[in-house]
Nucleic acid binder design. Structure first.
Lengths: 130, 130
DNA sequence: TGAACCTTGACACGCCCGTGGTAAGGTTCA
DNA sequence: TGAACCTTACCACGGGCGTGTCAAGGTTCA
């Protein structure tokens, strides 16, 4: 057999048993269980534990962030909404001098503002409205 | 003038001026500035503020999460590393209950509700060796 | 000019995250 | 059988997040 107990896995992956349980609770790495309920870490889990450590240290992110990335790839609706939000990002053309941009933008805005002012109704954007 | 000041923007987007500054510091929405340094919120910013609110409440995420999504689309290396990590996911059980995060999320609130629901963790089907 | 706004900075507070520890009890194995 | 491991559940604690409020000072405008 080549599955390790939580303590053994912790030792060779440089996490603590406590953190291995925490990681599992975050839904990131869920090892199999023995009949008695013991966590069993196989080579794939060990590898992922090591790379997870590298991920969080190298990019200075938390488990919450990795968990969120997981949500992003599991929940299409969430991913879509996020995409839409960033797609609406007001990008100011870099090549245009700030002053120019400002005047151009203000012109555009004054027109849009008139519309926005007249078009108040926004009861409850049912969904995906961006 | 067609851009709104922070207070006006706060009022019509249902945030507080405090939060508008906070959102800006999070790098999510950075309004232009007047010559005197006043924040100027134009229609695009106002729209994004509204949709940001919807995003956050509808999916129950924080500004930190949105900020992380921003990092993901700005830093290719990070996105690649995350992709790689999830690609290495051991697909033994082949299905993952998408309600995983939900359990995780509800867990925090459940403490406030003083719920007592202890149950024996169901041992996985004869895991054997991995 | 003065009220009403804006700026940044700081203190505060409650909740959540990452982590450790410990207790009470079940499992493994020499 | 007993030591050493495992399980879950709880307490603790420093730091960060989301938010409000206040202070000291600059800007706008009727």
């Amino acid at each position: 057999m080549d599955a390790l107990t939580i303590q053994e896995a912790a030792e060779i992956t440089d996490w603590s048993p406590r953190m291995l349980r925490y990681i599992e609770r975050a839904g990131l790495i869920e090892p199999q269980r023995s009949d008695a309920g013991y966590r069993l870490y196989g080579p794939p889990e060990l590898q992922r534990l090591r790379t997870l450590r590298e991920l969080v240290t190298r990019f200075h992110i938390g488990l919450g962030e990795v968990g969120f990335a997981q949500r992003l790839r599991r929940e299409d609706e969430l991913a879509g909404a996020i995409d839409a939000w960033f797609a609406a990002e007001p990008r100011r053309p870099e090549h245009v001098p700030a002053a120019e941009w400002l005047r151009w933008e203000q012109d555009k805005h004054s027109r849009l503002l008139a519309l926005a002012g007249a078009h108040r109704p926004e009861p409850t954007p049912a969904a995906t409205n961006v």
